[in-house]
Lab assay of single mutants.
Amino acid sequence: LQLFIKTLTGKTFTVEMEPSDTIENLKAKIQDKEGIPPDQQRLIFAGKQLEDGRTLSDYNIQKESTLHLVL
């Protein structure tokens, strides 16, 4: 599923993930694309901070959802 990642600077980029992927996987993918170390990434969806060990489906993140990346 394609997700939109929006940064505080207003930049938006996309990543391609599976619902079974963990937040950790997502942070690694963001590191590949943007060079931001996972330990500096905080991801927010629907007002909640996402925890590394959980999956996208745990948070009911669907295709074309927008996640906010806070550094």
Rank of each mutant, 00 (worst) to 15 (best):
Gln41Pro: 01
Glu51Arg: 05
Gln40Cys: 04
Gly47Asp: 05
Ala46Thr: 08
Leu50Tyr: 01
His68Ala: 05
Asn25Leu: 13
Lys11Asn: 08
Ile5His: 00
Ala46Lys: 07
Thr7Pro: 12
Thr9Trp: 08
Leu8Asp: 13
Glu51Pro: 02
Gly35Arg: 05
Asp32Glu: 12
Ile44Pro: 00
Glu24Trp: 15
Gln41Leu: 08
Glu64Met: 09
Lys33Met: 15
Ser65Phe: 07
Gly35Gln: 10
Pro38Tyr: 13
Val15Pro: 00
Thr22Ala: 05
Ile5Val: 14
Ile44Phe: 10
Ala46Leu: 11
Arg42Ala: 14
Lys11Arg: 14
Ile36Thr: 14
Ala28Thr: 11
Phe45Ala: 03
Glu51Trp: 03
His68Gln: 10
Ile5Pro: 00
Leu3Arg: 00
Glu18Val: 10
Leu67Gly: 02
Gly53His: 14
Gly35Glu: 06
Ile5Glu: 00
Glu34Cys: 03
Arg42Glu: 15
Thr66Glu: 07
Thr55Arg: 13
Glu24Lys: 06
Leu8Gly: 15
Ile61Glu: 03
Lys48Asp: 10
Pro38Cys: 03
Gln31Cys: 04
Ala46Trp: 14
Ile30Asp: 00
Leu8Gln: 06
Pro37His: 13
Asp58His: 09
Leu3Ser: 00
Lys63Thr: 06
Thr7Val: 12
Thr55Tyr: 06
Asp39Arg: 08
Asp32Ala: 12
Gly35Ala: 06
Asp58Gly: 06
Glu24Arg: 15
Glu24Asn: 11
Pro19Phe: 12
Gln41Cys: 03
Thr9Ala: 10
Phe13Leu: 14
Leu26Tyr: 00
Phe13Glu: 01
Asp32Trp: 09
Asp32Thr: 14
Leu1Thr: 04
Leu26Lys: 00
Lys6Ser: 14
Ser65Thr: 13
Glu16Leu: 05
Glu34Asn: 06
Lys27Arg: 08
Phe45Trp: 13
Met17Tyr: 09
Leu50Glu: 00
Thr9Val: 11
Ser65Val: 15
Gln49Cys: 04
Arg42Ile: 07
Ile36Tyr: 09
Lys6Leu: 15
Met17Glu: 01
Leu69Asn: 01
Lys11Ile: 12
Gly10His: 05
Asp52Gly: 07
Thr55Trp: 04
Glu51Met: 05
Thr7Tyr: 07
Gly47Lys: 05
Pro38Ala: 14
Glu34Asp: 12
Leu8Ala: 15
Ile61Gly: 02
Gln40Trp: 09
Glu34His: 08
Glu51Phe: 06
Gly53Tyr: 08
Leu3Thr: 02
Lys6Pro: 01
Thr9Asn: 11
Gly35Lys: 14
Ile36Pro: 11
Gln41Arg: 01
Ala28Gln: 15
Asp32Ile: 05
Thr9Phe: 08
Lys11Tyr: 05
Asn25Val: 15
Leu8Ser: 11
Ile30Tyr: 01
Leu26Met: 06
Gln2Val: 13
Leu56Asp: 00
Lys27Gln: 02
Gly10Arg: 01
Leu71Val: 09
Phe4Arg: 04
Glu24Met: 07
Gly10Asp: 13
Gly35Ser: 09
Glu34Met: 14
Asn60Cys: 03
Asp39Met: 10
Phe45Val: 03
Phe13Gly: 01
Leu43Phe: 06
Arg54Tyr: 12
Ser57Gln: 09
Gly47Trp: 05
Thr55Cys: 03
Asp58Leu: 03
Gly35His: 11
Gln41Met: 14
Ile36Arg: 03
Lys6Trp: 14
Asn60Met: 05
Phe13Asp: 01
Ile44Arg: 07
Ser57Asn: 09
Lys63Tyr: 06
Thr14Val: 07
Lys27Tyr: 02
Pro37Ala: 13
Asp32Phe: 13
Arg54Leu: 14
Gln31Trp: 09
Ile61Met: 07
Pro37Tyr: 14
Gln2Met: 05
Leu56Gln: 00
Leu1Cys: 03
Gln49Gly: 10
Glu34Phe: 08
Arg54Pro: 07
Leu43Thr: 01
Thr22Ser: 12
Met17Asn: 02
Thr66Ala: 08
Phe13Ala: 02
Asp21Cys: 03
Gly35Trp: 04
Arg54Met: 08
Leu67Asp: 01
Val15Phe: 07
Arg54Cys: 04
Ser65Asn: 09
Gln62Phe: 08
Pro37Leu: 05
Ile61Thr: 06
Asn60Lys: 09
Glu18Ser: 09
Glu24Thr: 12
Glu18Gln: 10
Ile44Ala: 07
Ile30Met: 02
Ile23Cys: 02
Gln41Ile: 08
His68Ile: 11
Thr55Ser: 08
Pro38Gln: 06
Asp21His: 09
Arg54His: 09
Leu67Ile: 08
Gln40His: 07
Gly10Val: 04
Gln62Ser: 05
Leu43Cys: 01
Gly10Leu: 05
Thr22Ile: 06
Asp39Trp: 07
Ile44Trp: 05
Thr12Pro: 10
Ile61Lys: 02
Thr9Cys: 04
Leu26Thr: 03
Thr22Met: 10
Ile5Phe: 03
Thr55Glu: 04
Leu26Ser: 00
Lys29His: 07
Asp21Thr: 14
Gly53Leu: 06
Ser57Trp: 10
Val15Trp: 02
Leu56Ser: 01
Gly10Met: 05
Gln31Thr: 10
Gln31His: 13
Phe4Asp: 04
Asp21Met: 11
Leu71Gly: 12
Gly53Glu: 15
Gln49Leu: 03
Leu71Cys: 04
Arg54Ala: 13
Lys33Asp: 07
Val70Arg: 08
Gln2Cys: 04
Pro19Gly: 14
Glu51Gly: 05
Asp58Thr: 06
Thr9Ile: 13
Asp21Pro: 01
Lys63Gly: 11
Gly10Glu: 05
Met17Ser: 06
Pro19Ser: 11
His68Phe: 05
Thr22Pro: 05
Lys6Gly: 05
Gly35Asn: 07
Leu56Arg: 01
Lys27His: 02
Ser20Tyr: 09
His68Pro: 02
Leu43Asn: 00
Asn60Phe: 04
Ile36Val: 09
Ala28Arg: 09
Gly35Leu: 07
Lys33His: 14
Asp52Val: 06
Glu51Lys: 07
Asn25Thr: 07
Ile5Met: 02
Asp52Arg: 04
Asp32Cys: 04
Thr22Asp: 04
Thr9Lys: 06
Leu69Gln: 02
Ser20Cys: 04
Gln41Lys: 01
Glu18Ile: 09
Ser65Met: 13
Leu1Val: 07
Val70Gln: 11
Thr55Met: 14
Ile61Pro: 04
Ala46Ile: 06
Gln40Asn: 12
Pro19Lys: 08
Ile44Gln: 14
Lys27Leu: 03
Leu43His: 01
Lys33Arg: 11
Asp21Val: 03
Leu8Phe: 06
Ile61Arg: 02
Thr14Gln: 12
Thr9Tyr: 08
Glu16Ser: 08
Pro38Gly: 08
Val70Trp: 09
Glu64Asn: 10
Thr66Asn: 06
Glu16Asn: 07
Glu34Tyr: 09
Gln62Tyr: 08
Thr14Tyr: 08
Thr66Met: 11
Ala46Gly: 08
Ile44Ser: 14
Thr12Ser: 14
Lys27Asn: 01
Gly35Thr: 03
Thr14Ser: 15
Lys11Leu: 13
Ile44Cys: 03
Leu1His: 05
Leu3Gln: 00
Leu8Val: 13
His68Thr: 10
Thr12Phe: 08
His68Ser: 14
Thr12Asp: 12
Asp39Pro: 09
Asp21Gly: 07
Leu67Pro: 04
Ser20Leu: 13
Ile23Gly: 01
Leu26Asp: 00
Ala28Phe: 10
Thr7Gly: 08
Ser65Glu: 11
Pro37Arg: 13
Leu50Val: 04
Asp32Pro: 02
Gly47Pro: 01
Leu69Gly: 01
Asp39Cys: 04
Lys63Glu: 13
Glu16Gly: 09
Gln31Glu: 10
Pro19Glu: 10
Pro19Gln: 15
Glu18Trp: 12
Ile30Arg: 00
Lys6Met: 15
Asp39Phe: 15
Lys33Gln: 13
Thr55Ile: 13
Asp39Gly: 10
